[in-house]
Design a protein around this nucleic acid. Structure first.
Length: 555
RNA sequence: GCCCCCGUAGCUCAGGGGAUAGAGCACUGCCCUCCGGAGGCAGGGGCGCAGGUUCGAAUCCUGCCGGGGGCACCA
């Protein structure tokens, strides 16, 4: 029985009590069921009585007794105690716990999914680094977290589009083109130009396409066009080898040709938040909490970057997305309010249609010293560098296992060391161990059982119970992580609950052995444990998949 | 000056109002040594400070202190 299933039973108990006139409250839409820290407090606990006491006008413990009386009759519940200020501590029947393993194996790759976002189209825009150089380590964090979040939203039933906004319209592209041209000619980097070693390499790639380029009058323009192509190929390839594939590469430049800018201006005017002042066209974002109004069209007639933002947002909504998710670095936090105000100015609900997530920066440490990252200076740590140092799995896991609210110290030396100090190895190793045992069973000729025919009440060891409860939490972890946009919750759960539980169980080599020794016969308990190992492997696979990390058969 | 994030164990970090605040690394002592020793168990040590809300605060609110990032008719 999972926490959510028990929650439903608790609600039913409350509803029955209300029906019988024992409680005068509204049945809550959701009740919190969690695993108590102390083993003395049963398998699961709920604070429902504490929450209902005020509305019921009665002491919490009294409410608890009423609910407990009903809950004791629920299927799979062995005992219910009222404890402390009014907690309900529930002990499950062994069989009810064992059924978790059956459910997990029966659901397979689908275990953990939910349909909370069914019918919702979500646009997840992330990375979107300037196409003037390789993806640097800050972008790598978003690649790892953004893709994991996209996977989580999909696991919650959403229709997700991964989108990369290509800033191909600004003066930085002029500088980029000029830098490539200078490098191709063997001239020094122009002032404000890009100076990394990659500039020379990419300039060569452009020349390979059009060898006579340097003699042509439109050389600079060609370097702009072809340089952008080379940059995008590089970026796309690097991200793809990182396991991140975007559905849409959206060109900022294309907004101008498509009429999207005009449509956005029309829509904003219709909503009545556009005005002219000092010869410029402004959007009155202060109507919706921004600290100042923003210019859309400058007094010289050209559009601002914010105008592109507006056109891009309106375009996304026109493409049918219910939720437009933006993942930005901390250096863009000032955009949050104006983007939300923009959505409101367009007549949308800034609480629903737009979400801006801010991720703190990554500090890269090497030899205990911070590594300065700068595209302009060229001393950069790129996505490829990180993958080369750690492997894609370790990098993705490490970057996705911390809250994006925290600045992350990525210690190159530590991540380079491929030891158990890196948590991904711990989790992957548990998955590998599960695979190894399943393989061993196959080699002994023990077939994996039909889940429905296993006597799961044989999984009676306390450590087996702990592991079963850990597996039962997975759907709730997935739903919560998706709802809060916090993929790191999945990683922490895998580490602390599943991998840990599996390792502890494995260590009970005498009492919880899976494979019979020597010529010992295969008994039902062995089969039941085999099922639990399969369930464990399934949750580790499903969880790692959500993070874009592999679950190897062997390491 | 204003805005955003952070402050939890020696270090790196979890903790979406609940019971005795958790992991990993490091340190100390054990266990398994024949399903993979890349493992397990135990111990020491912690919520920046001050108020407030609440039956209950690491969590929510206010102020202060400390660290990081940011303010544009740049892109």
């Amino acid at each position: 029985m999972t926490p959510d299933q028990l929650g439903a039973a608790v609600r039913a108990a409350v509803a029955a009590a209300v029906e019988a006139g024992e409680l005068a409250v509204e049945v809550p839409a959701e009740v919190a069921v969690e695993r108590p820290r102390s083993k003395d407090h049963g398998d699961y606990a709920t604070n429902v009585a504490l929450k209902l006491a005020k509305a019921a006008g009665r002491p919490p413990r009294e409410v608890a007794e009423v609910v407990a009386a009903r809950l004791r009759a629920a299927d799979g519940v062995a005992a219910v105690d009222v404890a402390g200020p009014g907690f309900l501590n529930v002990r499950l029947a062994e069989e009810a716990l064992g059924r978790v393993a059956v459910e997990v194996v029966a659901a397979g790759a689908g275990y953990g999914r939910n349909d909370a976002l069914a019918g919702t189209a979500v646009n997840v825009e992330f990375v979107s680094a300037n196409p003037t150089g390789p993806i640097h380590v800050g972008g790598v964090r978003w690649a790892a977290v953004g893709d994991a979040l996209a996977r989580l939203l999909e696991a919650s039933g959403a229709r997700v589009t991964r989108e990369y906004y290509v800033n191909d319209a600004g003066v930085q592209i002029d500088r980029f083109a000029a830098s490539l041209l200078a490098a191709a000619k063997g001239e020094p980097t122009p002032e404000d130009g890009y100076a990394g070693a990659y500039v020379g390499e990419w300039a060569q790639r452009v020349l390979e396409r059009e060898p006579d380029l340097l003699e042509r009058a439109d050389a600079l323009e060609r370097f702009r066009v072809l340089g952008l192509q080379v940059a995008l190929e590089e970026i796309r390839g690097a991200l793809s080898s990182f396991g991140v594939d975007f559905d849409v590469w959206f060109s900022e430049l294309s907004l101008k040709g498509s009429g999207a800018v005009e449509r956005a201006l029309d829509r904003l005017r219709e909503q009545g938040h556009v005005y002219e002042s000092d010869g410029a066209v402004w959007l009155r974002t202060t109507d919706f909490g921004d600290d100042k109004d923003r210019v859309l069209v400058k007094s010289d007639g050209s559009g601002t970057y914010f105008l592109s933002d507006a056109a891009y947002y309106v375009d996304k909504r026109e493409r049918g997305f219910d939720v437009c998710l933006y993942m930005l670095g901390a250096d863009h936090h000032g955009y949050v309010r104006r983007l939300q105000a923009l959505a409101a100015c367009a007549g949308d609900d800034p609480e629903k249609n737009i979400e801006v997530l801010i991720g703190q920066l990554v500090n890269v440490l090497k030899d205990g010293e911070p590594v300065r990252m700068s595209k302009r200076a060229g001393n950069i740590l790129t996505l490829e560098d990180v993958v080369e140092l750690t492997g894609a799995d370790a990098a993705r896991y490490t970057l996705a296992r911390s809250s994006t609210d925290s600045t992350l110290d990525l210690d190159v030396d530590l991540v380079t060391r491929q030891t158990s100090e890196n948590p991904v190895f711990y989790v992957q190793y548990a998955a590998t161990r599960a695979a190894s045992i399943l393989r061993g069973a196959a080699e002994l000729g023990i077939a994996e059982p039909d889940p429905a025919e296993v006597d799961v009440s044989l999984l009676a060891h306390p450590i087996e119970g702990e592991l079963l409860k850990a597996l039962a939490e997975f759907p709730h972890v997935v739903a919560t992580a998706a709802q809060l946009r916090e993929p790191h919750r999945v990683a922490r759960y895998l580490e602390e609950k599943v991998a840990k539980g599996a390792q502890r169980w494995f260590d009970e080599k005498v009492e919880c052995r899976v494979l019979p020794r020597g010529d010992d016969p295969v008994e039902p308990v062995h089969v039941a444990r085999l099922l639990l190992w399969r369930a464990t492997r399934t949750v580790l696979e499903n969880g790692l998949r959500l993070l874009g990390v592999s679950a190897p058969e062997r390491m």
